[in-house]
Design a protein around this nucleic acid. Structure first.
Lengths: 179, 179
DNA sequence: TATAAACATGTAATTATTAACATGTTTATG
DNA sequence: CATAAACATGTTAATAATTACATGTTTATA
């Protein structure tokens, strides 16, 4: 069981719906899935090569007009199988989720430290903005019940992200008041 | 401003209190800070070398008895400065926090998918266990107000972790009921 | 007391990730 | 219509992180 590097599954998951080019995939990380995951485009191209070498996807280079050359990737039956295997596999333990701000706080010992409140305020501002953004995403992406039911996983995690930000903000506000 | 690799700051932050060996540092990641961050011990040794080369810490090798040889690291004024700079620096934007389960859900489209509930249940179980664990940590680590006030950052983030897990569990429970 | 398990301390190799470099193509705009 | 900006597509180099390898020391236990 290959672990850790999840990018292959992401690419498979995206390509599964329809053949895509490297650039199409890159753009996915600027919108939809970009809310939950990030990678650099250089990584995408590397991984695509590996997936081809591995037989999980097939490439098809076409010439559009006489200038543009595009390589589309489509998933193979083997790739589909690999994707399914991952999607429904169980995790036996939770990964730690690394948050730089949380880390900083760990090293701020003194409750009376005057800079503490500043940091909390700044963080609160960032998370409020994020919360706002997520709320508008929800309205935008899921305007009706049919879309919700056909993209239920996405709907769930977007709601989760919103609740998480609400928790974050409320925690920070409480912390600010407490000092 | 060096970004990204936060391990140097963690090591500085830990060494700041008292000189420590590589192994001492490794152990920190199994208890206290291990709740919020993880690294492999091989990475610690590499980073310690770099910090020494960079003048942020100094090493001092001593022979205990006639067998054991230990190298203690202590922070230099330059290291302290670097640590302080990081601790009170502002972040301009939030990093994405990568969660494999959330990623999986993104690719599960169909609300009626029978395996969805299984996955949600399994996750719920994991987070309930984690929540329990964190609650007992809180009691253990912060038995009284004095300790709280002298380790306030740590107190705050432990509370945050607890609230986050509560959110996670409640989200999952709602999701399970919704399908 | 032999032997296994856990402690303690690192190095080397592999893989993943990010940053930097390159290069040609449309599209907008002054 | 010249030119800058953004689009599109990659490769190469550098850094970070994980995995595997190595080796000697206590401590527990059969």
């Amino acid at each position: 069981m290959a672990q850790k590097n999840l990018l292959p599954y992401i690419l498979l998951g995206l390509i599964e719906n329809e053949p895509m080019t490297g650039y199409d995939l890159k753009k996915e990380f600027e919108t939809e899935i970009g809310e939950f995951w990030s990678v650099k485009h250089s990584q995408i191209y590397l991984e695509l090569k590996r997936l081809v070498a591995n037989g999980d996807i097939e490439s098809n280079t076409g010439y559009f007009g006489n200038k543009i050359e595009k390589t589309y990737y489509k998933i193979t039956p083997q790739g589909t199988k690999s994707l399914e295997g991952w999607k429904y596999s169980y995790e036996d333990q939770l990964a730690i989720n690394k948050d730089e701000f949380v880390l900083k706080l760990y090293f701020i010992k003194d409750k009376k430290d005057p800079r503490l409140k500043e940091l909390l305020n700044e963080q609160s501002h960032l998370h409020k903005k994020k919360l706002e953004h997520l709320n508008s995403r929800l309205k935008e992406v899921f305007p009706n019940k049919k879309i919700i039911d056909n993209n239920y996983g996405h709907y769930l995690i977007l709601n989760h992200a919103i609740k998480r930000e609400m928790e974050y903000v409320s925690w920070l506000e409480d912390a600010i008041l407490s000092i």
